[in-house]
Design a protein around this nucleic acid. Structure first.
Length: 478
RNA sequence: CGGGGCGUAGCGCAGUCCGGUAGCGCGCAGCGUUUGGGACGCUGAUGUCGGAGGUUCGAGUCCUCUCGCCCCGACCA
């Protein structure tokens, strides 16, 4: 940890890779495109998991687990689905030393195998809605990979639900998008734009896809979660039918929705700075770190007990705290070390503080003098708790301001192309794939979503000038 | 798959043109001094020089083949 990371202004993607590795979130695995999530990174993922899982349970979902292997024939049952995924499938052809009668696909997502089970379990309208989620790993053979953002194997959750009517399924699709947005904004402090995906950007096999889109520190877009209205596409392919109240056999209406370890990458890129990670307090594995400072042994004996006492105070208040009592590194080193790891609050306690019965609080999101305050040891835990809440709020506000400052409303095509190089473009779009393709070709930007939040008036498509009912977010994306 | 680059200590690199006993920085280990913003000194450990074959008295260096990785262009959470 002797060096610092590549500055963001110099090379953003190197900054990202540096931070991920130096903060010990993840490391490259021996297998190309794969990563090892290290304990600190996994703790962050666990916090994300807990935040989401709590919300899934609160909205009536249950966790289950479906197998890693999917018969090849299953994938092929839904035409659009196969086409979308076949280039990136990992296929198992041998097992137990013999060639398999039917190759097995390592799941890229589980719609097919889950539907095979749903078809068995669902008989009656009384079995609906079926609200299932699973936490698992999936594999997609990606060409260009990046830690957390795009890896060959990644962790995620995939929700799969069945409903009696299209309306209910549609409601569920939007409910889960709201759950994602709520998590992103309140726990991860990441402002997101909720919207519908264009046809070219939607999930292979879905009728409609929705997403939450966030702006990263380099002004590029990242899809942080998606929710799909699947209609009856998979139900028809797998014969997932139920006998309705009117005694008619009907296909179920379905949804699926997912958030992956990519969310970790989003947290890094939305909040981080040149010192390293900045973690939102709600997700931070360590919310406050105590750094004791001493010069002599004598100091040490007076400082350490106080530091331990403060640790107990913080833990007693439910704050995830840690005392860094390492003796082999200097306080300055520790400051930088914990800043790299993004710990929101640092508590410094030295001989002078012990004398005065105080401690120094330092905010990770405000470096230097500006972010420091001198507070009494008494009642420290409530001050830290309050400070954590403030930091949580401030991180969100800062990210929101950044996104707004870098969002443009271009009126001409030339302006759209220009603006897309430095941020999000909110532009009228006629909805034609041709216009979308042209922006992708000439501006390297795609439609991220058609936001729910729309202007009152129709306008002219920023690309072709024809009448456009809606605006879309155009941006360069991860 | 097309274009560019790189494989030498845990990491980052020099050495390769011009063959002659494998080096630097960081990290690591031991000891001592240090500690309010990345401490310092001394001592020490660590290498199939990506792999195979060849040329040569002698190859990290020259030749042939091979493997792997990274970066840039067509897909995706």
């Amino acid at each position: 940890m002797a060096q610092s990371v590549t500055p963001r202004s110099e090379d953003y993607s190197r900054w990202y890779t540096d931070v991920v590795q130096m903060a010990e979130l993840a490391d490259y695995a021996p297998v190309k495109g794969c990563m090892v999530i290290r304990p600190y990174g996994y703790a962050l993922w666990e916090a994300i998991k807990e935040g989401l899982d709590r919300r899934f349970k609160a909205t009536g979902h249950q966790n289950a687990y479906f197998p890693l292997f999917i018969p090849e024939s299953f994938i092929k049952k839904e035409a659009e689905h196969v086409e979308g995924f076949s280039p990136e499938l990992a296929v198992v052809t041998h097992g137990g030393g013999k060639e398999l009668a039917e190759p097995l696909i390592v799941r890229p997502t589980s719609e097919t195998i889950i539907n095979a089970m749903f078809a068995k379990w669902i008989q009656s309208w009384r079995d609906l809605p079926m609200l299932i989620n699973q936490w698992c790993n999936v594999v997609r053979w990606e060409m260009r990979t990046r830690l957390f953002l795009r890896t060959t194997e990644f962790l995620w959750q995939e929700g799969h639900t069945c409903h009696a009517t299209a309306e209910e399924a549609q409601e569920e699709t939007l409910r889960m998008l709201d759950v994602y947005a709520d998590f992103a904004e309140n726990d991860a402090a990441i402002p997101v734009i909720k919207g519908r995906k264009s046809d070219t950007e939607k999930f292979a096999g879905a009728v409609r896809s929705y997403a939450i889109e966030a702006m990263m520190g380099d002004r590029r877009a990242l899809q942080a979660g998606t929710s799909h209205f699947l209609g009856q596409n998979f139900a028809r392919a797998f014969g997932t039918q139920f006998l309705d109240k009117d005694n008619e056999l009907k296909y179920v209406w379905q949804t699926s929705w997912g958030v992956s370890t990519r969310m970790v990458g989003a947290v890094v890129m939305v909040h981080g700075d040149d010192q390293g990670l900045i973690l939102p307090p709600r997700l931070a594995p360590i919310q406050a770190v105590i750094v004791p400072i001493w010069k002599s042994d004598e100091d040490r004996y007076s400082v350490l007990p106080v530091a331990r006492q403060v640790l107990a105070q913080l833990e007693g208040a439910g704050i995830r705290a840690r005392l860094d009592d390492r003796e082999e590194v200097s306080p300055g080193f520790k400051f930088n070390d914990w800043e790299m790891r993004g710990v929101p609050v640092r508590v410094e306690i030295g001989p002078r503080d012990v004398e005065k019965g105080q401690a120094v609080l330092a905010r990770r999101d405000m470096l230097g003098r500006e972010g420091k305050s001198f507070v009494p040891q008494e009642g420290l835990e409530s001050r830290v708790a309050k400070l954590l809440a403030t930091i949580q709020k401030d991180l969100f506000a800062r990210a929101l301001r950044f996104r707004e400052e870098n969002t443009y409303q271009p009126r001409s095509y030339a302006e759209l192309l220009e603006v897309v190089e430095r941020g999000f473009a909110r532009a009228y779009w006629c909805g034609s794939p041709e216009c979308e393709a042209r922006v992708k070709e000439e501006g390297k930007a795609t439609t991220r979503c058609i936001p729910f939040d729309q202007p009152d008036e129709p306008g002219a498509c920023a690309v072709c000038g024809k009448r456009a009912e809606e605006v879309a977010i155009f941006a360069r994306a991860y």
